[in-house]
Design a protein around this nucleic acid. Structure first.
Lengths: 124, 124
DNA sequence: CCGGGAGGGGATAAAATTATCCCTACCCGA
DNA sequence: TCGGGTAGGGATAATTTTATCCCCTCCCGG
C-alpha cells in the first residue's frame, strides 16, 4: 500500500468496494480463496501470470481490510493458509453477482478488445 | 483508453467487470446516470473533484463498452445526454449490490484509513 | 553440499491511470 | 466586447499501481 497524495472521496459505497477489491489480481485471489485454494504457493500456481511478490502485496491489502485472514502454522516447512473472514463471506454474494454478469459478457468483450487492437495495430 | 503493453487475462468474469467499471470515477458516473443525471455539465457539477476532461475520458470508455449511450442534439448551445443502454441496465442490479455492501462498510473503512495515515504521519 | 520447495520482502524500474493546463467553437445577455 | 455557459480534446506532467530482480531463512532428498 503506497501513500496517496490525491485524496479519493468515498461518498458512494461503490467507491469503497472498488478500493477494497479493485486491484489487478484481487478478483482472482478472492475467487480462488472462496473456492478453497488457501496456500500462497497454490495461489501462485493458479495465477502464474503474477509474481509471488505481487500476489503477496494484494493479499496483504485484502487482509488489511479484513476480507481475508491468515493462519500461520509454526511448522517446518512453513505453512500458511488464507481464509475468508465472516466479513469476507458477506462479500461473496456480491462477488458472485459480479462474476456472473462478467461471464455473460466475456465473449463480446474479447471481440471488442480485438477490434481495438486491430485498429491500433497491436497484437498481444 | 491507452495502449496496454502487458496483456491482462480475463479468465474470470470479475476481471471483465472490473475492466469495464474499474475507473476512478466510473462508479459515480454510472450511479448518477442511473439516477437520471444525464448532461455532462450536470455530471461535472455532481463530481467537482474530477475535471471535465477526466470525466469525458471515463464516459468514453463506458460508452465503448456499450454500457451507456449518448444522444447529441444539434442545437445551440450544444446539448448532450447520456443514458444507460439495455446492457447498462442489466448491470444496475450488480452496481446496486456493490453499492449496498460498500455503504455498510464506509464507517469502519474511514476509521481504517485514518489509522493508516496516522501511522505514516500523513494528514490529508 | 547443492537444488528445490516452503515462506517472505527491499529497492527500483516500468507501465498504466489521472490530473493539469490550455485551446477550440458557438451563442446569449449585460 | 467581455464573461459565462454549452461541449470537446491535445500535450504533457504527476501519481499510483504493477513488475522485475535479487535477497533472506529453513528443511529435506539426493
Amino acid at each position: 500500500m503506497y501513500e496517496k497524495k490525491i485524496p479519493k472521496d468515498f461518498s458512494c459505497g461503490m467507491a469503497v468496494l472498488m478500493e477494497i477489491i479493485g486491484g489487478k489480481w484481487k478478483s482472482y485471489l478472492l475467487f480462488l480463496i472462496g473456492k478453497g485454494v488457501r496456500r500462497p504457493s497454490e495461489l501462485h500456481r493458479q495465477v502464474p501470470a503474477a509474481t509471488k511478490r505481487v500476489l503477496n502485496l494484494q493479499l496483504k491489502e485484502l487482509e488489511f481490510h479484513g476480507i481475508i485472514g491468515k493462519d500461520i502454522y509454526p511448522e517446518l516447512p512453513p505453512r500458511v493458509e488464507y481464509f475468508l473472514t465472516d466479513f469476507g463471506q458477506s462479500l461473496m454474494p456480491v462477488i458472485n453477482a459480479m462474476d456472473n454478469w462478467g461471464s455473460g459478457y466475456v465473449g463480446e468483450f474479447r471481440q471488442l478488445m480485438e477490434r481495438k487492437s486491430e485498429l491500433s495495430g497491436i497484437h498481444n
